[in-house]
């Protein structure tokens, strides 16, 4: 336990020191503010549910940005430390490999949590006050977005560790991380869309599609946030396709949580077999 806290605290310290946290916060904030400004433009006037609209746009942004930031944090965790010789030192000390990984995980999740809270928190407040106060309930939506983004980030951090522990070179781990990102948030959805178009009889749309949608942690995240928002206001996309989803509401977040648990276990297993 001592080792876990020490490693987590050091990761946070490094994240602060090398400006990782500030940089990713600013990127999230910049994108979020653009969406806030664009979101209020088309209507001409700012409605009371402006914050809700912003939350909807931000959750789509999150699907792309948060996994990317998470993977960039994670790919270096094992391969990079082997490259630099510091993993050998950590493993030579009486700390279990499981504790090393959990410590890094907690540290990286904290780094991501700070960045997401800061970036989305400020954007949410800007939208709130720009719309002239209004319904404070909408702010709960911002909180929900932040919390679910952190869970989504945690999932991709754990997935990134598998990439980092499986290869010996940092460069290979980085390439692998980008490939995972591309597949999970871009190609997967495109493939699903293609499947929907190709399946004429509708079996795919009714039976397979909903499960595949929930299976992908990024899509599950989007479903959760969309279902949480009043679908009438925002207008729904994938989730409202008329197909019965296997999971609904908060339960959709079980997908990223399960992914996190499984991939964290798997990367610990791989790390135990690493011979530095």
């Amino acid at each position: 336990m001592h080792g876990v806290i020490t490693i987590a605290a050091t990761e946070i310290r490094i994240g602060l020191r090398n400006r990782w946290i500030i940089l990713s916060s600013l990127i999230l904030l910049a994108f979020a503010l653009i969406l806030v400004l664009l979101g209020s433009a088309p209507g001409g006037e700012v409605k009371t549910d402006a914050v809700t609209v912003v939350v909807a746009s931000l959750s789509t942004l999150s699907v792309y940005l948060v996994p990317l930031i998470a993977l960039l944090l994670a790919f270096d965790a094992i391969a990079g430390e082997i490259d630099r010789g510091t993993l050998q030192l950590v493993l030579a000390s009486p700390v279990s490999r499981g504790a090393v990984l959990v410590g890094k995980f907690l540290g990286h999740v904290a780094v991501l949590a700070i960045a997401v809270s800061f970036g989305y928190g400020i954007a949410g407040l800007v939208a709130f006050f720009a719309s002239g106060g209004g319904d404070a309930v909408a702010l709960i939506g911002v909180g929900r977005l932040i919390a679910s983004s952190i869970i989504l980030g945690a999932t991709f951090i754990a997935i990134g560790y598998i990439a980092s522990a499986s290869v010996r070179q940092t460069g290979t781990a980085a390439a692998l991380a980008i490939a995972i990102w591309l597949f999970a948030v871009v190609l997967f959805d495109l493939a699903l869309l293609g499947g929907l178009l190709a399946s004429q009889d509708g079996v795919f749309a009714r039976v397979v599609f909903p499960w595949l949608l929930v299976f992908n942690p990024a899509d599950a995240f989007r479903l959760y946030n969309m279902s949480a928002i009043d679908a009438v206001v925002v207008g729904s996309n994938l989730g409202g396709a008329g197909s019965a989803l296997p999971l609904s509401g908060l339960a959709t977040m079980l997908s990223p949580v399960a992914w996190t648990a499984i991939t964290l276990g798997l990367s610990t297993f791989i790390l135990k077999r690493v011979r530095p």
Partner: peptide, 25 residues
């Protein structure tokens, strides 16, 4: 152990590096 080549995190101070390993041990 002291490996042949080790690159400690550049952003940390010497004291922080030693304290890190002291805690692990």
């Amino acid at each position: 152990y002291l490996p042949e080549q080790v690159a400690f995190p550049k952003m940390l101070t010497g004291r922080e590096v030693v304290r890190f390993y002291a805690r692990l041990k």
